[in-house]
């Protein structure tokens, strides 16, 4: 890669700042328990005590998720705007990236690396996921609040639709996270360690995934 010529082999970049990592931890600790207990509440496999415990975990997880989103929105507006810019800016590179699915099926299934269009901080698949998570997250949080706080007060029809929307959008979100985001996160192990660890990563380790970001969006600490 030509970009590497301008960097030292040992150069390290802070990819995810502390507030971003804390927010991500809150999403993990809030969304996953809420999502899994959501399935339990839907299937009702346990006794009344078990279901009661599942509901408590569901509410606590959802509370953490909601609080984290509100705090991140208030205290990190720069990151929110940066996220919006990334997920809503689509170029020909993104279309080409989507056409080959980022080269992941070829790499995972056939062990073959194919040329992939260069990306910024997040790739086109993550952009698609970002758009879905942004809107679906708002829908799930709002419908959850109605179900928790205002169920006896809203008309029956609205309560029924709220319940169904919460269920379907929540399940889609859980499938997208557990079926796509988490496996691919684990597959890109160094990125995984970066997000769950101290947020740093060697530039040589992300030069393939984020060449445009390295080229245009980072600067040396003075």
């Amino acid at each position: 890669m030509n970009i590497l010529k301008t960097f030292d082999i040992q150069d390290v970049v802070l990819k995810h700042t502390l507030p971003v990592r804390l927010f991500h931890w809150c999403l993990v600790l809030g969304f996953l328990p809420a999502g899994i207990t959501g399935i339990v509440l839907f299937l009702r496999p346990f006794s009344s005590e078990g279901m009661h415990l599942a509901m408590q975990i569901h509410i606590l997880g959802a509370g953490l998720l909601t609080l984290a989103c509100i705090c991140f929105f208030i205290f990190q507006p720069g990151r929110v705007v940066s996220f919006w810019r990334e997920i809503f800016s689509w170029t020909k590179n993104d279309i080409d990236w989507m056409k080959v699915s980022g080269g992941y099926p070829q790499k995972i299934l056939f062990g073959k690396e194919i040329p992939v269009p260069p990306m910024r901080k997040i790739n086109s698949g993550q952009k698609l996921m970002g758009i879905f998570v942004f809107f679906a997250g708002i829908v799930v949080i709002l419908t959850g609040c109605i179900l928790y706080v205002a169920l006896p007060l809203v008309p029956k029809e609205i309560a029924w639709y709220t319940d169904k929307i919460h269920l379907i959008v929540g399940m889609c979100l859980l499938v997208a996270v557990c079926g796509g985001h988490i496996p691919l996160g684990i597959y890109n192990w160094k990125e995984f360690i970066c997000m769950f660890g101290d947020g740093t990563i060697k530039i040589k380790d992300i030069v393939k995934h984020n060449p445009l970001w390295i080229e245009q969006d980072i600067e040396k600490i003075k």
Binding site: V12, V13, L14, T200, E219
Partner: peptide, 10 residues
């Protein structure tokens, strides 16, 4: 890990 690069301010 010590780092020497950061993302430009938004």
């Amino acid at each position: 890990m010590k780092y020497n690069y950061v993302e430009k301010a938004v």
